[in-house]
Write a protein that binds this DNA or RNA. Structure first.
Length: 199
DNA sequence: CATCGGATGGACT
DNA sequence: GTCCATCCGATGG
C-alpha cells in the first residue's frame, strides 16, 4: 500500500497515449475538498486519440472551448458534462496533439466514509465508483476542475499499487456505437478481475 | 433562437 | 430489456 500521496511529476504524462492509459492503472486518483480527501486506485481507462479517432471529441482536430485543453500539455484535467454527469479525463499527447485518457473506474482507497456519503443511491460499495460518472461524484470532481494540472492539489494522481502487464486486459471502448470503425479499436484497458471495473 | 445528440446512471417492466 | 432526467456543445435559420 502507498505510504505517501505525493503527486507524480509532469514528466509521467509524457508517454504515448495508449501506453499512458495502461501506466495509469493502479495509480491513485485523489481529490481534496473542504470535506476531506478521497481517493481510489484507477482500475479502468480508455484512450481517445484526437485527429483519427471518430469517437474523440477532438476528432478532425476539432478545436472548441470544450476541447481546447486537449491541445495543450499532457497531465492536465479534461472534464466535460455527459447528460447529468461530469466525466474526468487526463490530457495526454504532445502540445498540438489533442489526446486524452478517460478514467472509467477506481477502487476506493481513502476517504471511504465521505465517498459513501456522496453516493447515497449506491446499493453496494462496488457501485460507489464503478463507472465514469459515478467516480467523479464519489471523489467530488466537478467542471470546476477543468484544466487543473494533476501534479498538484486539490486534484492529483499519485503512485499506487504495482500492476503487472499480465494483469492488464484490453477491449473495445464503451458507449461509442456511433463512431464507425473506431468503435472496434481495443483502446479500453482494465485490471483483470477487479470488482470495480464498470463491466 | 430551435433542435438534436451524447465517452451515463438510475428507476422501472 | 426500456425509458428519461437534464445539460452543454454543435449546428442551422
Amino acid at each position: 500500500m502507498p505510504n505517501q500521496l505525493k503527486p507524480l511529476p509532469k514528466s509521467f504524462y509524457n508517454q504515448p497515449t495508449l501506453q499512458l492509459a495502461q501506466s495509469l492503472l493502479g495509480k491513485l486518483l485523489l481529490k481534496e475538498t473542504d470535506d476531506g480527501v478521497t481517493g481510489g486506485f484507477i482500475v479502468e481507462t480508455e484512450s481517445y486519440i484526437g485527429p483519427d479517432d471518430r469517437a474523440a471529441h477532438s476528432f478532425n482536430n476539432k478545436r472548441t472551448k470544450r476541447t481546447e485543453i486537449m491541445f495543450g500539455e499532457a497531465g492536465r484535467t479534461y472534464t466535460y458534462t455527459m447528460h447529468t454527469h461530469c466525466l474526468f479525463n487526463v490530457v495526454s499527447g504532445s502540445i498540438g496533439q489533442p489526446e486524452a485518457v478517460l478514467i472509467r473506474a477506481v477502487e476506493p482507497y481513502t476517504g471511504q466514509e465521505l465517498m459513501e456519503k456522496r453516493r447515497p443511491k449506491a446499493k453496494s460499495k462496488r457501485q460507489w465508483t464503478n463507472g465514469p460518472g459515478k467516480l467523479t461524484k464519489a471523489l467530488g470532481i466537478t467542471m470546476d476542475d477543468y484544466g487543473h494540472g494533476l501534479d498538484q492539489r486539490p486534484l492529483w494522481i499519485a503512485d499506487g499499487k504495482m500492476v503487472a502487464s499480465s494483469q492488464i486486459v484490453s477491449g473495445p471502448r464503451i458507449g461509442i456505437d456511433n463512431a464507425g470503425e473506431a468503435k472496434h479499436y481495443p483502446w479500453r484497458f482494465w485490471i483483470a478481475g477487479n470488482a470495480f471495473v464498470s463491466r
